[in-house]
Amino acid sequence: MPSPLTEKQTLEIGKSNKRKYMLEKLSARIFLLCALLSVLSLLLIVGFVFYKGSHPFVAEGYSFIDFVFGVDWVPSEGKFGIFPMIVASVFATFGALIIGVPIGLFTAIFLAEIAPKSIAKIISPAVQLLAGIPSVLYGVFGLAIIVPFLQNNLGLAKGQSLLAIILVLAIMMLPTIVTVAETAIRAVPKTYREGSLALGASQIGTIFKVVVPAAKSGIMAAIVLGLGRAIGETMAVILVAGNSLIIPTSLTDSVRPLTTNIALEMGYAFGTHQEMLFATGIVLFSFILLLNFVLAKISSKGGN
């Protein structure tokens, strides 16, 4: 027969409960603090870049329009025009998309729909490993293999070119596209495929007419993420770009994308020159923001 709790016992239980709740609350606060840290970092970075980058336009009388559409970049003479770099960044990124998206998409389809488990087991980790290679190694690979290859086989005076950037970026964006697209394709309900196959459609027909359209929003997200990876890439690009300050008229011209302009000159820059490099960062940041906005739109559509 259990005796009723004495007053002392009740008090002790209450105490231990209190301690438990305190611990609970404390851990919640610690998690909150960690979460706030990333928000804080974002604010600091954005704030710093915008503060530094906007200074020449606010306080020194430079025109932002001239900055974005100017074709001359001669910091030592006070000429800051990044139009050639914007063109280079856009061309390089979309060029990489043209090569990278089909390859990435087909790889994802193969992994999710066609490949036998034994083969997928080899390819899947390989693709993921590709994502883990430091970008500077892609650059070294590009400089040692792709640049000489282009130089020798296309009879060019220099292999550092838009084409070299496109090839390197196409390889670099593959893992992003493959992983995200594969997940999207796998998420398509089995009943869709079964329905299509039951109606007599072939496997490939089913994939392209039923599965891929059903996974459309996920695949679009994969492409936008790949795009983001490509436009922000610096270290790999700096080695193969050639960094010339011209508006490219052919694939074999050497160009300087926005990212490499910052990385290349930040080391020695000071004063207005440095602030203009931050301003270059603002333009780059705007591109990335735009991409994220598009991505959010796509995701919300997918939800509906």
Binding site: G242, N243, L245, D253
Partner: peptide
Amino acid sequence: YTSGELVRSSIVAS
């Protein structure tokens, strides 16, 4: 020569 006169198609390396 000045930075402005440098041939535009030059490769720039750090």
